[in-house]
Design a protein around this nucleic acid. Structure first.
Lengths: 350, 350
DNA sequence: GACGCATATGGAAGCGCTTCCAGAGCGATC
DNA sequence: GATCGCTCTGGAAGCGCTTCCATATGCGTC
């Protein structure tokens, strides 16, 4: 001692207590008299002591690190805001309680993607894992994780996944319904819908809400042109071109996420359409681009940061041995979404 | 053994060698016969053994974790792509060599921001730190870090910072020159320039390049309207409004980053200007928005991912005790930038 | 006054790995 | 054939912490 970083023993010596006692104070353990606690704290302060996290991890059997799994895909990278926001939220929650966050990009097209995730779990680096789409919708993977009793929470998972592991999401069906309703009230009758990649159940739920709104308004859902994109800006451009060049052009176009909506806007601009008079376009997510674009995008705001934070918090509880969520029910944490009305949707020109 | 995760001792036992030998094989140590190496590897494979990283960290005195410091500022958050890209690059480099990456958002307006960074260093959680602007330009902080001999690399640091610690950046002055040159060749003569926040030296260098190009073309730099923004979309909107509403409107507007350029585009749209005929706007960074926006933005591409990866690699070398960069000189790693010509800049209407 | 039962403190044993140092084997050198 | 120096291998110590268990003290109960 003396030289190098101070250790717990230095603190114990200075405070005149045993090492265990220092440990107890540091970890908020019970049965420590106030006098001793003060002495220890004073010693910690004086020595500028910092626990050695690796030693703590080794001894305690917990790493105090959470992992975030997201899909790495060159294609979707512009879409990265979606993941960044979740990450930022989780990161903040983590640093508040002294946890770290490790992020892992996993290629979703890899045949071994589920194995890769299981390997991350086996590495024992993390106390818990936050899964984002499409991993959060992979029922088989989820079951595997559940089988080894590893703490996990699925973000934006669809209904089926929600019944397997704890999750945090918005009510995508309701959001899709509200968005469509808004368009309906604006006077639209001819719709087109660009879905996202298959397997993203929550995005699919948005379509379900769309269908419900249409039916309720007495419009046959089959009258709407429905295509499937890949969540990317480019796919939005291409599909919008197909849709808008066709006969009987719709007056309103709903996209399963903002990036595709922005792509659609791009195509519309290229075609020289007057926006939003000749075409209303709406998106989903409320990523930063939506208010930057011209015209600013009407969309559904998803509180991604909050969702990331909630996910981390659920994990903290699980890790520290809290009673697992009140069974079946509390398993799915719903956070509120919000319809954000901007200028990309208006009444159709008659 | 038997139950629980296999440890290095289990592997040693199965391979019929000592624990040290296994350690040597795992870490690529010297002096291991081929026969023994094979036996160990086979045992590792059979047992599905994974090293326990916390034990390794504790014993080895190295955490094998790199830290990335970025500025958290509610204002600049839409700008987060800039940081995300650097992070992604660093992350990939890290996972290739079995390192982890921890990210830390530090409020740049906090009075204790330098202290906060020093505290992160003292936590001993990281083997090295990657600093992004504006931290990478904080000479005092850099000197402090250098004084405790902690491995660090500054990303996008300005000239002064580059002489203190290893850094990776593009040649911002040259980039600013090229961009201006492009506009000049297009026929522009009346310019405006929106700078970024003070203290971001590299962004300031872009302006210096602009001045040099103007002088070379025989145009007085003082003839250009110069304002200072804060890198945000909103500041781009506001400042562009001031500039474009003034008399003697410029035909070309150069912005120190893409977000402000996009803001300027937004204002121009609002004013009903024909783009790019009536106004050319160029940005800097080539973030994803620049190709999404209408009209697509002419800008300077910064290889952010590469820069993040390079930064991590420099740290790997430093951490594993490689000879520190060949003195003064190699300290600054320059990576190539690229002028990306899209449609937001054209010849001015005469 | 002996007993029980909380509350407070400490001793010792490890967590799973790496590093330091010692030793064994063996061909080359004089 | 003794000495050197090389390559390969292992024993032991210990990184800095937490956990388990034992012990000491105080106080109410019969």
């Amino acid at each position: 001692m003396g030289s190098g970083k101070p250790t717990i023993d230095d603190v114990a010596a200075l405070a005149g207590v045993a090492r265990v006692t220092v440990s107890r104070v540091l970890n908020g353990g019970p049965n420590v008299s106030d006098k001793v606690r003060q002495a220890v704290l004073a010693a910690v302060e004086k020595l500028q002591y910092k626990v050695n996290v690796q030693a703590r991890s080794l001894a305690g059997g917990k790493s105090r690190v959470l992992g975030l799994i997201y899909s790495s895909d060159v294609e979707t990278e512009p879409n990265s805001f979606y993941y960044s926001a979740i990450e930022l939220g989780a990161l903040r929650a983590c640093s508040q309680v002294g946890f770290q966050l490790g992020t892992h990009a996993v290629n979703q097209h890899s045949l071994r993607k589920a194995d890769l995730v299981m390997e991350i779990i086996r590495s024992r680096r993390y106390d818990g894992l936050i899964l984002t789409p499409p991993f959060s919708d992979d029922a088989e993977l989820l079951e595997n994780i559940k089988a080894v009793r590893f703490p996990v929470v699925a973000v934006s998972a669809g209904r089926p996944a929600q019944s397997i592991v704890p999750s945090v999401s918005i009510d995508d069906e309701a959001a899709g319904y509200e968005l469509t309703r808004h368009l309906l009230l604006l006077g639209h009758r001819r719709f087109a819908f660009i879905k996202g990649l298959e397997g993203h159940v929550s995005a699919e739920d948005r379509y379900l809400g769309f269908v419900r709104a249409l039916e309720q308004a007495g419009i046959a859902p089959t009258s709407a042109r429905v295509e499937r994109g890949s969540f990317t800006f480019r796919s939005g451009i291409d599909i919008a071109a197909r849709i808008l060049n066709g006969s009987d052009r719709p007056t309103a176009l709903i996209c399963a996420n903002d990036d595709m909506a922005v792509g659609a806007l791009f195509t519309a601009h290229k075609m020289g359409l007057q926006l939003p008079r000749e075409l209303s376009v709406v998106g989903f997510d409320d990523t930063p681009v939506s208010e930057i674009i011209w015209p600013p995008l009407t969309t559904i705001h998803q509180p991604l940061k909050t969702m990331g934070a909630r996910a981390a918090e659920i994990l903290f509880d699980t890790v520290s041995g809290e009673p697992p969520q009140p069974a079946e029910h509390g398993l799915a944490n719903l956070v509120p979404h919000r319809l954000v009305i901007r200028e990309s949707a208006s009444s159709p020109s008659l």
